[in-house]
Design a protein around this nucleic acid. Structure first.
Lengths: 208, 208
DNA sequence: ACCTGAACACCGTTCAAGT
DNA sequence: ACCTGAACACCGTTCAAGT
């Protein structure tokens, strides 16, 4: 179903996100996106140098509805809300989530979220240099949590095997009732681990 | 250059790894692998259900030369060596590294490394349940560090922009001399953050 | 019954030909 | 000068035809 004419990068990215939400990651091909917009596939190349650049724009767009929660809250609440929000936003768009995990959004939304994390970490008492290093670590963890929850545009059952595999080792842990690898609970555990480490570094930075 | 006849999953995985090392991730196609082995592309399907399963085997193979360092060492030294070793092994095979990052190796090597991490964490004093949760977090972090260092089978320059982007924010940190996102130094920082958190949890588990 | 390779239904991107 | 779409060089996988 062809549409009107005026193409912009934003319109293209929105169409691609729609297709990804509907039909998965592999459906976001140049041909399918052009079909959705009713234009020639080659027309997309006048707005993006290649498919990778187009998907970068889609990934950034998917981060648009992550809110930086009330700036008056504690730094750890803010950080927790931000990182959780990034993961949740990506999971709301499973088609583009693998791309978010593989390549950090660096456009408008990526910069906004990066800035929010930096202020929360500075608020925590980290030195500017450590705040940057920590931001990168949190981005890495959020990305990985995404890759684990999503595979090829659908929530990935296979990761559950990691938990099963680890549970079946000699040291014999309980096994049942443990969070699966890509689950919300497992994500929360790792994030708490990182926040504990951050608190420690913050104390050291403040003491220095 | 066709070779001899007998195909096994191991021989196929070795050929694919060789191609990936030489020509990158996209070169590991069913057709190219078959060409390397001098067989029909369809012959591969008698040993693997699909391409994804074949790449899973290649990813596991790439972990084969990670050593569990001297078991007498401190738990944090062992963990550090294991996680660093996983990342280094994957970076030695950049063609398969993105796949290692996206899907954890669960075959022979994956189970061996999982078991090694579990014993180190138990040694640290963690409860079995927390040891599993922490293993998963460490796997997640290692995977992410890989995704950041490698893109499409080559070390990714684009991630350096994350560091640049964060450095250019209002709060104005020094900017120069900071580790780039996919770098060894940045990886070490995040790993130390996690080890600090683990030490904290270990103390709590021991006290309970 | 097993194996092969032609064929199907796609890709991203180049580039020559049209306007 | 700009835009188009045919064509190139690939994919993973199915399946009918051969042995």
């Amino acid at each position: 179903m062809p549409k009107a004419k005026p193409l912009t990068p934003a319109i293209i990215a929105e169409a691609a996100l729609r297709i990804g939400d509907r039909d998965g990651a592999k459906a976001m091909s140049m041909r399918r996106i052009a079909g959705e917009l009713g234009c020639d596939p080659m027309a997309l190349y006048r707005h993006f140098p290649d498919r990778q650049a187009l998907l970068d724009a889609v990934a950034d767009l998917a981060m648009a509805d992550v809110r930086d929660p009330d700036p008056g809250a504690n730094w750890d609440h803010r950080l927790h809300a931000l990182v959780t929000g990034i993961r949740a936003a990506a999971l709301r768009h499973p088609g583009i989530a693998p791309h978010v995990a593989a390549r950090p959004p660096l456009a408008e939304q990526g910069q906004r979220l990066g800035a929010a994390m930096m202020t929360a970490l500075t608020q925590a008492g980290l030195s500017p240099a450590d705040a940057i290093r920590t931001s990168q670590t949190l981005v890495a963890y959020a990305a990985s949590a995404l890759a684990m929850a999503v595979q090829g545009g659908t929530r990935d059952e296979r990761w559950h095997q990691v938990s099963d595999t680890l549970s079946s080792l000699p040291d014999a842990p309980p096994g049942d009732g443990l969070p699966a690898t890509g689950s919300d609970e497992q994500f929360e555990f790792g994030l708490r681990l990182l926040l504990l480490g951050i608190r420690h570094v913050a104390a050291a930075d403040a003491g220095a």
